[in-house]
Computed example of a mutant assay.
Amino acid sequence: MFKPFVRLHSKSKYEGNGLGLALCKRIVGWHNGTIEAVSRSSGAEFVICLPLEKTAKSI
């Protein structure tokens, strides 16, 4: 689901090109964070964790 152009539903059902979550993952990764999806009966929850301070890896 976090790969470019991956779609879980047909384009006729939901618009989009399949890049949104891939871009989110890349941006979160640039900040040394993590992103995960949690399935819920009412939909999905996306959890993003970012470090509070810059690390040597991000400099």
Rank of each mutant, 00 (worst) to 15 (best):
A56K: 12
I48K: 07
Y14K: 12
E45V: 08
I48T: 11
I27Q: 06
L50F: 08
A44M: 15
S39T: 14
H9S: 12
G43S: 08
S10P: 02
G18H: 00
G33M: 02
K11I: 09
S12M: 03
G20W: 05
E53I: 08
L50N: 05
K11G: 00
P51M: 08
S10K: 13
H31I: 07
K25Q: 14
R26S: 03
N32M: 04
L52P: 04
F5Q: 05
K3F: 07
A56N: 03
S58K: 08
A22F: 02
E53H: 09
R40P: 00
L8H: 10
A56E: 14
L52T: 10
S42C: 14
G43A: 02
K54T: 07
A44S: 10
G18V: 03
C24P: 01
S58I: 09
L8F: 10
I35G: 01
A22H: 01
E15V: 05
G18T: 00
W30T: 08
L52N: 12
K11E: 13
E36Y: 03
L23D: 14
W30I: 00
K13Y: 10
G43Q: 02
S10D: 13
V38I: 15
R7C: 03
G16V: 07
F2S: 00
K13S: 12
I59N: 11
A44H: 12
R40Y: 09
S41D: 15
V28E: 05
A56W: 06
R7H: 13
C49Y: 01
S12H: 07
S10F: 08
K54Q: 06
A56G: 01
V47S: 06
V6T: 10
P51K: 07
T34M: 02
T34S: 15
L19F: 13
R40K: 15
R26T: 05
S58F: 03
K3V: 08
T55W: 05
S39R: 15
G43M: 05
C24W: 01
K11W: 04
A37P: 00
P51W: 11
K54L: 12
K54S: 12
G16R: 01
K25S: 07
N32A: 09
M1P: 06
A37V: 10
